[in-house]
Write a protein that binds this DNA or RNA. Sequence first.
DNA 1: GAGCATACCTACTCGTGCGTAAGGTTACGC
DNA 2: GCGTAACCTTACGCACGAGTAGGTATGCTC
Lengths: 216, 216
Amino acid sequence: MLARVSTPPTFKRLPRAVREQQMLDAAVKVFSRRGFHAASMDEIAEDAGISKPMVYAYLGTKEELFVACLHREGTRMMQAIAGAAAPDLPADERLWRGLRAFFGFVGAHRDGWAVLYRQARGEQPFAGELAAMRTRLVDVVAGMLDHALRAEGREVGETELEVVAYALVGATESLADWLADHPDADPEKTATRMMNVAWLGAGQLLRGTTWRPPAS
Amino acid sequence: MLARVSTPPTFKRLPRAVREQQMLDAAVKVFSRRGFHAASMDEIAEDAGISKPMVYAYLGTKEELFVACLHREGTRMMQAIAGAAAPDLPADERLWRGLRAFFGFVGAHRDGWAVLYRQARGEQPFAGELAAMRTRLVDVVAGMLDHALRAEGREVGETELEVVAYALVGATESLADWLADHPDADPEKTATRMMNVAWLGAGQLLRGTTWRPPAS
DNA sequence: GAGCATACCTACTCGTGCGTAAGGTTACGC
DNA sequence: GCGTAACCTTACGCACGAGTAGGTATGCTC
């Protein structure tokens, strides 16, 4: 009450949709800085310029809030990538565009997405959420490889394909981390480097060249 | 006291070194099942067949305990890999042996190491610990690539090298996760697959072949 | 300008789990 | 056979943070 006197005009009453976005912004920021567990609802509320019960009223429990963050950021990323992927282009062109979009997105949301991603990997409750996104990505990549293979009349076992896709996605994530940790690095250039590793490696595989273990 | 009567011979007094290993075993098990935060010291103590204050007396706080786990498992892994790396072999042979040792290790410690690794990525307090191990790995790989490059009279910028190494390490970790999630998958085969992607891709790069972005 | 819904707050409860104090028991040296 | 040191216990203090109860202000509708 006493404090109220000094801040009468500060409290703007805002519509729900706006406040929800502010809360999500704050949540992403705090979660990414502190990690899921170390982040407190109080801090998120304070950072959003609002009180804690409002967060509960709008976004639910802490876990639900985190999932909401994951969804918003994940959806944004998927859209950014999907927007760049014209399905009737040659495989390397599609891969290139996808990678460029992906690294562009990570570069623009450094502490946003990459760190949420890191977070969600460990925490049991969200392993599922994240695994789903990852699986979608792997499937997309595997599909692309498969498509390119069939176009050349070749074919490869399903597991084989999945594993290669897994490796590529892993390499890409790893470079995304690297990018997030190097604020002055160029996303475009990073995408090119990834493309080099991925395409030369995968390209060889597509052409039927394989490496065989020595007889040891 | 009453309970004591029914269990007089149960309590073996064991030397510190033995108990410490038992505690670490239990800690690795519980941390990997529950995750760092969800794991409770009580459960770890119970699983080790000992009471909580003993854990504190020997291994210190929860964070210190986790770091101790990380160190033990990390050291074991590094040794497994180092033991397989004769420095005077050709680069692809060395890479192959390293990968085989690595996947062999992960295969043998599925819920041990791979999951701790996943854990440590997110949690702020351990980002440093893990980053150090990762950096060592990246340096080893980068050194190998550099060595192979110079042998062919070629040379590449330092960042370039680091990034490629980063991508390879990321892809390898990703496959390690895949392996940990597929209990009946063959580590040897997984290593071969990784070798395919890595070596064909890196091999091309070594030979000077590079992919260039289209003029868009 | 009464009524009603929505935005928003302060100030609590309560569980959980880290870390510890204080004391009991076994082995071993002398 | 007795001290002493290491081993091991039960039982607690205490902080922190998720989630809530209950109340106040604001604006919109008729």
